[in-house]
Simulated assay, not measured.
Amino acid sequence: MTRDASRPSRPASPTFSPLYRQIKDFLIRSLEQGEWGPGDAIPSEGELAVRFSVSQGTVRKAIDEMAAENLLVRRQGKGTFVATHSDPRSFYRFLRLVPDNGKAMPTVSDPFYCESIAATPEVAAALGLKAGDRVLLVKRLLRFDGEPVVFDEIYLAADLFDGLTLERLRGGDRSLYSLFESDFGVRMINAEEHLRAVAADAQSAELLGVGSGDPLLLVERTAYTYGNKPVEWRRGLYCTRHHYYRNDLG
């Protein structure tokens, strides 16, 4: 017997969410609303258990999952803190390029362009905007031990970064994500990357000191803040002459 296509289908049953996941959602909402800022200590598991009228075990499970997702950081004997991009360890969470010898090298961000432009259809789709909406385009070189290794074109949702200028980007030695977090209240929570091999064009060849047509690694990244909101899309061209892209699985 076939179903009459004109008849409405039965609505799907509501998805069951475990209690600890509900507590996790409450905590994420508190982070998003700024109740606790980056680097702040959150209340103890006991205090949160009282607040939400649940067991400490339920709170612990929620916090464990958030710590695994780099939203929170546990510090033995001190408590649990909101993760921050000011922590040097967070730098390598989003930059996976490693020197061939495996030794950490001084890394310097060298921005050289910052302008408001109209979003192309590709950029708009990545950031959840409309084509023609204003976005900020930042161009920068990332140098490892003085050697230019990454050429980034970074597109940002302009309404979240009002007042961002090239002078501001060049001030101090903070990472871009640390600057976005501290000065604009935008914290990058997670990112999705697409990788492919490409040939260097004239501009990237000159900036990275390679020959035109030499192989480069193209890394396209969409970065998200709380609520899975896309706020950054970037195209990074990586020179892998003395470096490799590392991704830990498992």
Rank of each mutant, 00 (worst) to 15 (best):
Y113H: 13
V219H: 07
E47I: 09
G34W: 00
A126Y: 07
A131L: 02
N101P: 09
D214H: 07
G211C: 04
E206R: 12
P215T: 02
L179V: 10
A223L: 09
A197C: 12
R140F: 02
S90Q: 12
S13K: 14
L179H: 03
L195C: 02
L48I: 07
D4G: 08
S30N: 12
P18H: 08
F91L: 01
L27I: 08
G79I: 01
N247A: 14
T165N: 00
S178W: 11
L195H: 14
R96S: 15
R143K: 14
E192R: 15
K130P: 00
A200C: 06
R3Q: 13
P106K: 07
I189M: 12
A104E: 14
G37A: 09
F91H: 09
W36S: 00
R196L: 08
K61A: 07
M1Y: 10
G172I: 03
K130W: 08
V73Q: 10
L71P: 05
R140C: 00
I189E: 08
P14G: 02
D100P: 08
L207V: 04
R75V: 11
L31M: 09
S178C: 06
P121N: 05
D87R: 07
N70F: 15
V138S: 05
R168P: 06
A125N: 10
S30P: 02
R3C: 10
S116C: 12
L217E: 04
R3V: 15
A83G: 10
R235I: 07
S17D: 10
F91N: 03
H194D: 09
K103V: 12
A223T: 12
S90T: 13
E35M: 13
D25L: 11
G39I: 06
Y20K: 04
R140Y: 08
I23A: 04
G227P: 04
C114E: 02
E193H: 15
N228H: 13
M1L: 12
L216A: 02
R187C: 05
K61N: 11
L141M: 08
T2A: 14
L218K: 08
L208V: 05
P43R: 07
F184A: 03
F94M: 06
V150D: 10
E32Q: 15
K103W: 09
D248K: 12
R168N: 03
F81Y: 09
P215F: 00
P11E: 02
T240M: 14
L208Y: 03
G128T: 00
L71W: 11
D214Y: 05
F52N: 02
V82H: 01
P43D: 05
F52I: 00
Y113A: 06
S90C: 07
V138D: 01
R10N: 13
E192C: 12
G79V: 00
M1A: 13
G211S: 10
V59D: 04
L127E: 01
L141S: 11
S55M: 03
S44R: 02
L95Q: 15
R29M: 12
G213I: 00
